[in-house]
Each structure stands twice: as structure tokens, then as C-alpha cells.
Design a protein around this nucleic acid. Structure first.
Lengths: 216, 216
DNA sequence: AACAGAATGTACCAAAAGGTTAATTTGTCA
DNA sequence: TGACAAATTAACCTTTTGGTACATTCTGTT
């Protein structure tokens, strides 16, 4: 029986997981919005159903909270890629799909990219403390290595293709598109950030990725 | 015991320009190091020869100081490009030179890129207040437009090449290389950030840029 | 029902941080 | 030279902010 559904609360209920999730979701927005130092604990609490005490109860301090936020962001960022099922496609198609997907996914989830950018401003010091994040990210490289190996074997890829360089290039393209949008569009106009402009950039990325691996 | 150090200065020279320059230089480092909100006025002053009051005397407040820092960063970033004298070279060579130069320059001046990244975290709000920065940056586009026109005219460039897309791509590559170095190298290793790795990336950028404009 | 321990809310605090006041020194020009 | 403005210093102030003490409520177990 579920006794917790939709009841009017005059006083509070115990719900550790719900509280944690609430804080984490709000904190993600606030950190992504204002950066680590710019984010205000009081602002996070204001947008939350819970009280300030809970942050320190569950996350220790501001840094602890931020670390969990970052961890969750990386997890969701990589989760999408896992579902692409690249093994099912021929190498060139798989690469095209991966590049296009990454472009769209980052575009649709700018908060995650902003958090990573913020983490870089802080020299990756929270990332260095994380146990889980490196494991998550090695998956994408393993997937790309596999993809490249298949491509080389079936003769569609050059044999000196480097999976890491490929990942770097795709990331550069997709991340810059989000992380530097504010300054770029202000200085050079919005043309590349309209739907049409973004489609051109995505097509550009795909063709660049394919050119990197294809035989001359 | 030293009577001159740590004691109140009984005599000093008036040097407005020197003081301003000193503050600006130190502030550039501190903001680039810690971000806008993370930077501490007291830390800037500590590294300076002058006193706290001078920041407010010359720059108004923290935001005003940061705006000037950002302005100076953009100015120095673009100044290099002006000296490239791209008009003197054939279009393809000029483009190769520009791409390679941009890559090296950003690599050698990471502080400027960090400041731009920080500005993006703050949604470009300081940039929007600047009168001079947009003018500086339109120069690079004008230069690229000229370069593309020459390339199309002499038949080495495709006729649908887009100078803005070209600039975007070069920027994405060069900026990402700096702005995301901390997280990328921690997750995927340092291989691409050794001298050899950086040379490969630069060569990759140049060939990508040329591929974008060259006839098929 | 009573108890213990986990979960939560309220009120509060100490320190950090940005900013200001007021006084002092230096330069300039009649 | 002396008055007045510009430049500079040191000490001080106010607000913000991350963090905490303590009381209270809930919930599973005996």
C-alpha cells in the first residue's frame, strides 16, 4: 500500500531521497546559472521545498553539494550516448550519428555544459575528487575505439585514425557552441544560433568528423 | 628590524597611469584565476603596490574593474591578428597562417581565454556594456571576408564559403583547447596536451580550415 | 505506548567581502 | 608661495554569506 500519495501536509514528512533530489535539481540550475562562487546557498534554498539545514545535513558544505551536482551532470551527459547503440550501425554511419547526437544533446542540455565550463574555471578540482566520473567517461572512448577498429577492419576508415582526437574534435565543436554562445553571438550576431544556423553547424561537424576518418 | 618596510608610507609619488596599469595587470591574473565572483578585491590589492581605495577611485566597483580587464584582454587578443598582414599572402596560405597563429596565440595566452569563458558564465553582461570591444572584433571578420573574397575570385575557394562559419570553427578549436583543458586532460589523459599532441591538433585545425574552403 | 534515532525547521552567528570616510600628501599654476 | 585640485593611504563600516545550535517532528522497533 502506498500511503504517501497526494496528501495535504500541515506538517512535514520524512522523505530523504526526495529532499536530496529536490536540492540537487535546484542546485544544478543555480550553479549552472551563476557559477560556483556566484551561486548562493540561500538562493538554492529559496527555490527548494526544504530548509537550509538539509543541504549541510546531506551534502556537508557548498563544495560537497557542487561535487554531487557535477557528478550528476556528467552521468546524464554520458547516459544518452550509451543508448545510441553504435554497434548496430556501419562505422561511418555510427560516427555520423554520434556526432549529430552529441551536437543536439549538448544544445538541448546547456546546463551540463555550463557546469563543466565552471568546473574548468576552477581547474577541475572537484572533478579530481570524484571516483565515479572518470569511469563514466572512459565508456565513450571505449565505444569510439571499438568504432574505429571496425572501420579500419572493414576498410572504410584510414588506419591511422585516433579515437581520442576524434572525441576531442567533436567535443570542441559541441561544447564551444554552448559555452561561448553569449560572447560570440553578441560580437558576431545570431545567425549561427538560429535553427537554420545550428543545422548548418551540425552538418559541418558531421562532415568534418567523417573527413577525419575517411580514406583520402 | 626594518624601518622602511611594513610601515606607513610617509612619502609617495603621484602616478595615475602606473597605478591603473598595476591594478589592471594584477586584476587580470586574479579574475582569470578565480572567476568574477571568486576573485577577491583584497587579494588583488595584496598583489598590488597600491591601496584598496584606488580600485574604487579609478574603476568604480568590482564590476567596473572586471569590465576594463575584459576590454584589455580582447584588445590584446585581436592586436596579434592585426599584425599578421594576411593581405600579403595568397588566400590558402593566409588562412593556414591565421589558423595556426590563432591556435598558438591562445595557447600562449590562456588568461584571455579564461576571461572570455568567465564572461560567458555571466551571460556576457559586461561585454554588452562595452563600446570598444565590438569594434575590435569586427576587424577579424572583415579580414576574413576580404580573404574569402580573394579566394573566390582567384578560384582557390569554393564560392559558398562563409567567413563567419570559418571564424566560428577556428575559434571553437582554439578556445576549447584552453577552456576545457582541465577536465579533458583529467578524464582522457595528457596525450593531446604535450607539445607533440598540440602540434597534431594544430595541424588538424589547419587542414580542417583548408578543407572547409577548398574546392572538392 | 514508549523509545531511539533519523529527518527537518527556525533562529542565529561569525567571518568574509565589498565598499566608504576622512585625513594626508603631492603636483600645479596664479 | 600659497591655494586648490588630484592622488593616495589607512582605518573603518555594512551587508552578505556560508555555516551551526538547538529544538521539534516523524517513523520503525520493541
Amino acid at each position: 500500500m502506498n500511503r504517501n500519495e497526494g496528501e495535504r501536509k500541515t506538517s512535514w514528512k520524512q522523505d530523504p531521497e526526495g529532499v536530496k533530489a529536490d536540492i540537487l535539481a535546484v542546485a544544478t540550475s543555480v550553479f549552472a546559472e551563476a557559477g560556483f562562487s556566484g551561486a548562493r546557498i540561500d538562493e538554492i534554498i529559496r527555490r527548494t521545498k526544504t530548509s537550509k539545514r538539509m543541504i549541510y545535513y546531506y551534502f556537508g558544505d557548498k563544495s560537497g553539494l557542487y561535487s554531487k551536482v557535477l557528478e550528476a551532470a556528467y552521468a546524464r551527459l554520458r547516459k544518452g550516448e550509451d543508448q545510441l547503440d553504435l554497434q548496430a550501425l556501419p562505422p561511418l554511419e555510427a560516427l555520423a550519428k554520434l556526432a549529430a547526437f552529441t551536437f543536439d544533446f549538448h544544445r538541448n542540455n546547456p546546463e551540463y555544459i555550463r557546469l563543466i565550463t565552471i568546473e574548468n574555471i576552477h581547474h577541475g578540482k572537484h572533478l579530481k575528487q570524484s571516483e565515479t566520473i572518470p569511469k563514466l567517461n572512459s565508456q565513450i572512448i571505449i565505444g569510439l575505439e571499438d568504432l574505429c577498429r571496425r572501420g579500419i577492419e572493414d576498410g572504410t576508415f584510414r588506419d591511422d585514425v585516433d579515437p581520442l582526437e576524434l572525441h576531442w574534435t567533436i567535443s570542441a565543436f559541441c561544447v564551444f557552441n554552448i559555452s561561448n554562445r553569449a560572447t560570440f553571438s553578441h560580437l558576431y550576431g545570431d545567425d549561427l544560433f538560429t535553427d537554420a544556423g545550428q543545422e548548418r553547424l551540425r552538418a559541418r561537424l558531421v562532415s568534418m568528423a567523417l573527413d577525419m576518418v575517411r580514406l583520402r
